[in-house]
């Protein structure tokens, strides 16, 4: 009995929580693989254009419709050229340069729009679920946004904001801001509803009652008790949101609301290549693979992060 009372103080201070999370994340193979790939693709699109210096918009009409270099292995008649290892498109623009330039735009749009969506969705969801008085108005607002037809909304936004944004940020920068905000404000609603649903249930759990009884403030309650417990649907929303944002961007440029037509993005490359997918399967393959693998790696990273952040799993 007395042994317990004289138990010595811990020899070293408790490990930092974030360090713990990091170690746990390191043990998650999927997360490491996903994170590694994400880093690779990000570095690739950021610094690739400095190594592979061909201008993606440069048209070389004599060398159009080139196949990727490896097709020469099984088809000796294929038009290939070492200068364009991934082939060229119907106007002779280099495939590799386009893939990297397209990746810059798609990654930037995807991440920014996804974070914006998550931000708005989570805040509205948590607030609506936690504060009963705000639930009604916020959820009716969500209903309203879900009902608004997107296409007219886009056209209105373009009419009102394109010129001022173009004047202050240039044609591409202005369009970027417009696209990102449009995707952001038209896709936060599912996240908000999902988060709210979970918060409604969490709020009635015993641990919340316990926390409240020891006088936890509202802010702390949300930060320490509610948010960590709705993390997994948010992570799923994030991965799905990234994919949706990249695809939506291409749908926007199809409607003429997106980037200038000679500005490549993965989604647009994919959309443009669909008509020729039988003759030139690689043109759908590269951007399709790039989008899928990016989304997949974000998904694995999200899985790992969720596991690492869950104290019940951590340390097992």
């Amino acid at each position: 009995m007395t042994d317990i009372s004289i138990e010595p103080l811990p020899a070293k201070p408790p490990r930092n929580k974030w360090l713990d999370i990091w170690t746990q994340l390191g043990k998650h193979k999927g997360a490491m693989l996903g994170g590694g790939f994400l880093l690779f693709i990000t570095l690739g699109v950021l610094f690739g254009p400095y190594i592979w210096t061909i201008d993606p918009q440069k048209i070389d009409i004599r060398n159009r419709d080139l196949r990727p270099i490896f097709t020469a292995l099984f088809d000796s008649d294929a038009k290939v050229r070492w200068a364009n290892p991934l082939g060229t498109d119907q106007l002779g623009r280099d495939g590799l340069a386009n893939l990297m330039a397209g990746g810059r735009a798609s990654m930037a749009v995807g991440w920014t729009a996804m974070l914006l969506t998550l931000g708005i969705g989570t805040i509205i969801g948590v607030v609506a679920g936690y504060f009963k008085r705000l639930d009604g108005p916020l959820m009716r607002l969500t209903d309203l946004f879900l009902s608004l037809p997107i296409l007219p909304l886009l056209l209105v936004a373009v009419t009102l904001f394109r010129e001022p944004l173009r004047a202050s940020f240039g044609p591409e920068g202005g369009m970027f801001i417009l696209i990102v905000s449009i995707i952001g404000i038209t896709s936060w609603m599912p996240t908000a509803r999902i988060v709210r649903g979970d918060v409604l249930a969490l709020k009635e759990r015993e641990f919340v009652l316990a926390a409240r009884s020891i006088g936890t403030t509202q802010t702390n309650m949300i930060k320490r008790h509610i948010l960590p417990n709705v993390l997994s649907p948010i992570m799923v929303s994030a991965t799905l949101g990234l994919a949706t944002a990249i695809i939506t961007e291409s749908a926007l440029s199809f409607l003429g609301v997106g980037f200038p037509s000679d500005f490549p993005t993965w989604g647009k490359m994919l959309a443009d290549a669909v008509d020729r997918m039988e003759n030139f399967p690689e043109r759908v393959l590269w951007p399709g693979l790039a989008i899928s693998l990016t989304v997949l790696s974000v998904n694995y990273l999200g899985d790992g992060l969720r596991d690492a952040l869950d104290p019940r799993i951590r340390g097992r």
Partner: peptide
């Protein structure tokens, strides 16, 4: 859009710059 890209390039060869825009 292909025409736009091609003509933009042709005009750039005579020192004329163009910004492309396509509208639904």
């Amino acid at each position: 859009q292909d025409f736009q890209a091609l003509i933009k390039q042709m005009w750039s060869e005579i020192g004329i710059q163009s910004e492309l825009r396509n509208i639904s």
